[in-house]
């Protein structure tokens, strides 16, 4: 099977408000796309993302998300102000549907993502029939 990863630039994300950003992400996730954002989501955005995910979960198609934020936050005041003005936090956020992502785990020197490569038989059949 194919796995699609979409990379979204910080510039694109900066143009979106929180709500728009979250529906943009979820829309991709629900189409079985793994999304890599060139920014660290804010904790409040993460809470909103979880909330929105919970609203979208249904028994048949969508069981939720796995995500992981890697922060490389500005340390000095200057950088912090620059970050604030740019309206984003430096880092990366990976978000994907649980049906594709087995786990995202923090190792001492890196983040490891384990993807599932085979879809269950019944889902394959359904896909073929569409």
């Amino acid at each position: 099977m194919e796995i699609q990863l979409d990379f979204v630039s910080a510039e694109t994300l900066a143009r979106k408000g929180s709500a728009e950003k979250i529906s943009f992400i979820l829309d991709k996730i629900k189409r079985n796309i793994i999304v890599v954002l060139e920014e660290a989501l804010e904790p409040q955005e993460e809470a909103e993302l979880i909330e929105a995910t919970m609203r979208e979960i249904d028994a048949e198609e969508f069981h939720g998300i796995e995500f992981y934020r890697i922060d490389s936050r500005a340390k000095g005041l200057r950088e912090k102000i620059a970050e604030y003005i740019a309206g984003r936090r430096h880092g990366i956020t990976i978000v994907g549907p649980t049906r594709l992502i087995e786990a995202i785990k923090r190792e001492p020197d890196y983040i490891s993502m384990l993807a599932k490569v085979d879809i269950p038989q019944e889902e394959k059949k359904k896909k073929g029939g569409e």
């Binding site: 979880i50 995910t53 919970m54 979960i57 028994a59 069981h63 939720g64 998300i65 796995e66 995500f67 649980t98």
Partner: peptide, 24 residues
């Protein structure tokens, strides 16, 4: 708090399909 809820995981605890879906 969780980022995912899969009703099938409840069935492993002996719940019926319907109960598991309601719980999810």
């Amino acid at each position: 708090i969780a980022t995912q809820v899969d009703y099938k995981s409840f069935k492993a605890f002996g719940m019926s399909e319907e109960d598991a879906k309601a719980r999810a």
